[in-house]
Design a protein around this nucleic acid. Structure first.
Lengths: 220, 220
DNA sequence: TATGTTTTTTTGGGTAGTCAAAATTTCTAT
DNA sequence: ATAGAAATTTTGACTACCCAAAAAAACATA
């Protein structure tokens, strides 16, 4: 049985692999993301390799094996179902559930997680719009454009926010800029590197390019 | 911040202290209850002493300090609220929630636990009738008699079952012998060391003295 | 009270995860 | 093409657990 530390490393590699288009993930990047020393990662990569969860080329980086990817997807499933459960059933705020789920994802049993899934009506996405992997570990990522990449002055609906910082999420909530809501990008300024967003029913907001790229939208 | 291992040791000492009428708890007993080697306990007792959670007399035994007792009570509160939550809100069976709570008690945040408490209407006891300590750590144990110690042929109501073995709990459920239900003890036989119990609406059942002593009742 | 049994503590050793700093490899630029 | 910078791995050491077995203390009984 994998430890919760192992599960965290797998989640991290999984995430970086995605934001990398399948390139190898460097140990340095993992160290940075996990907040540990580089040497710690090298050691861990060896044990993950021995467990058959990753493929590791020294000095090059790592990639998940099928087993590693499936395991990561299961952790992600637990994380995201817990997040949705906390918002939907427990009435918690979408800005506070990430940290809670970060711990609970290692503690809830399969029985309990499937009970939650049932109770929530087998949901497809969590409160941030992140897709929930199936019980078998299948995960379908959408390739929605972000507020940075979409057309101007079109009616958009927000599908996903890929940033878990509490303060950022609270700000978005205040501006009614959350998954399920609608908005229009009015301007994109390459000099100041900002976009001007007008949420449906919320105060307009100016976002830096990087922040804007973390809010994904689907056209109709 | 105490580790979950430390929390488990404190819970154990707390429990043994109670079943001991405040005597010192021996390291051997702790080893047996925790399922670890005796030397492991001795080592842990030293670190608990250094953290100010217990008082430790070598070769004599240990007792909780006030801080240790408060911490143990908080863990117990988390455990029991989680158990009740799993039964009441998640619809799980009272025989399966103990193991789940054993893990979750170390993972749920204070915020979440207070949310559960609210949702459940500030309950006083968990599904097994065990009292739930207050948020401040106060714990009031009842001194109800057991099926072994109570009068014969009196109408009783079950208040508590102090045995967490799944199979035992399932058996009691089948016989409708759970907290909140009624029953009568018809005979107590000192030769076979059994009592004959007739639950209200359930099949009669013959229990060994030890098993009977774990089912507590309140007279009207 | 002396001996043998039981209980407890000590000792030496193991795993998982971590860090700091030294050593090594790879990358980058001129 | 090679020096210097950057990234990575290695090494030695630490904490929190755990065990087995030796040593010590406490207890029980003849």
């Amino acid at each position: 049985m994998p430890t919760s530390t192992v599960e965290d490393y797998l989640k991290c590699i999984h995430r970086e692999e995605r934001s990398n288009e399948g390139q190898l993930v460097s140990t340095g990047k993992i160290a940075q993301e996990m907040g540990v020393a580089p040497g710690t990662v090298t050691a861990m990569m060896k044990t993950l390799t021995e467990s058959g969860l990753i493929r590791y080329e020294p000095y090059m980086g790592v990639r998940l094996t099928d087993r590693g990817r499936t395991l990561a997807a299961h952790v992600l499933r637990r994380h995201r179902l817990v997040e949705l459960f906390l918002v939907q059933i427990m009435g918690m705020d979408w800005s506070e559930v990430h940290d809670e789920a970060e711990v609970l994802e290692h503690a809830v049993s399969d029985r309990l997680i499937e009970r939650m899934d049932e109770m929530l009506g087998h949901p497809k996405v969590d409160p941030h719009g992140d897709p929930i992997p199936s019980a078998t570990g299948a995960l379908e990522e959408s390739d929605d454009p972000s507020l940075l990449a979409c057309a101007l002055n079109r009616d958009l609906h927000i599908t996903r926010v890929t940033d878990q910082r509490k303060e950022f999420l609270r700000l978005l909530e205040q501006h009614k800029l959350m998954p399920g809501r609608r908005a229009v990008v009015e301007t994109r300024d390459d000099l100041t590197e900002t976009v001007q967003v007008r949420p449906d029913g919320g105060e307009p907001l100016r976002l830096g390019f990087h922040a804007a790229s973390r809010i994904l939208v689907g056209r109709e």
